[in-house]
Amino acid sequence: MSRICELTGKGRQVGNNVSHANNKTKRTFLPNLQNVTLLSDSLGRSVRLRVSTHGLRSVEHVGGLDNWLLKTRDDDLSLRCRRLKREVRKASTAEQAAA
């Protein structure tokens, strides 16, 4: 499983370890990924995702998983999240039509 956030697309970065003698060796910076269960209001169920802590804070700031998915471009989302976004959009349009 790759170390990529399913919501934000944040992945590993490459940089250098720099010693006191200014020797440089390659290293990787990995995102802080967590397995979380997020609730979808429009679907009425929970979804397990592998999300970075930055992505989790962003979801809470926007107002929940549904709002995050509807506001985010498809290019940034994983395949699972794109399918989930399609389900959320379909459910939200069905709610609006019923109201």
Rank of each mutant, 00 (worst) to 15 (best):
R3V: 04
C5R: 00
C5V: 04
L7N: 04
T8I: 02
G9Y: 00
G9D: 11
K10A: 06
G11F: 00
Q13F: 12
Q13W: 10
V14T: 14
G15C: 05
G15L: 01
N17E: 03
V18N: 05
S19T: 15
N22S: 09
N22H: 11
N23W: 08
N23C: 10
K24C: 02
K24Y: 03
T25V: 12
T25I: 08
K26M: 08
K26E: 11
F29D: 02
L30S: 09
L30G: 00
N32G: 13
N32Q: 15
L33I: 11
L33M: 09
L33R: 00
Q34R: 13
N35I: 07
V36I: 06
V36M: 05
V36G: 02
T37E: 04
L38G: 01
S40N: 03
S40W: 02
D41S: 11
S42N: 08
L43H: 01
L43S: 01
G44R: 03
S46D: 03
S46F: 03
R48K: 13
R48D: 02
L49H: 00
R50Q: 07
R50S: 08
R50Y: 03
V51M: 09
H54M: 02
H54T: 08
G55Y: 00
G55S: 12
L56N: 08
L56D: 04
L56I: 07
L56A: 08
R57C: 04
R57W: 03
S58I: 00
S58H: 04
E60W: 14
E60P: 14
V62M: 12
V62C: 13
V62N: 05
G64S: 09
L65F: 01
N67P: 04
W68P: 07
L69S: 03
L69W: 01
L70E: 15
K71I: 11
K71F: 13
T72F: 04
T72Q: 15
T72S: 15
D74Y: 09
D74P: 08
D75T: 13
D75C: 10
D76Y: 14
D76S: 14
L77F: 09
C81A: 15
R83S: 10
L84D: 03
L84A: 01
K85W: 04
K85A: 09
K85G: 05
R86W: 06
R86F: 12
E87H: 06
R89P: 03
R89I: 15
A91Y: 09
S92A: 11
T93H: 08
T93F: 12
E95V: 12
E95I: 13
Q96A: 14
Q96R: 14
Q96E: 09
A98C: 10
A98H: 12
A98N: 12
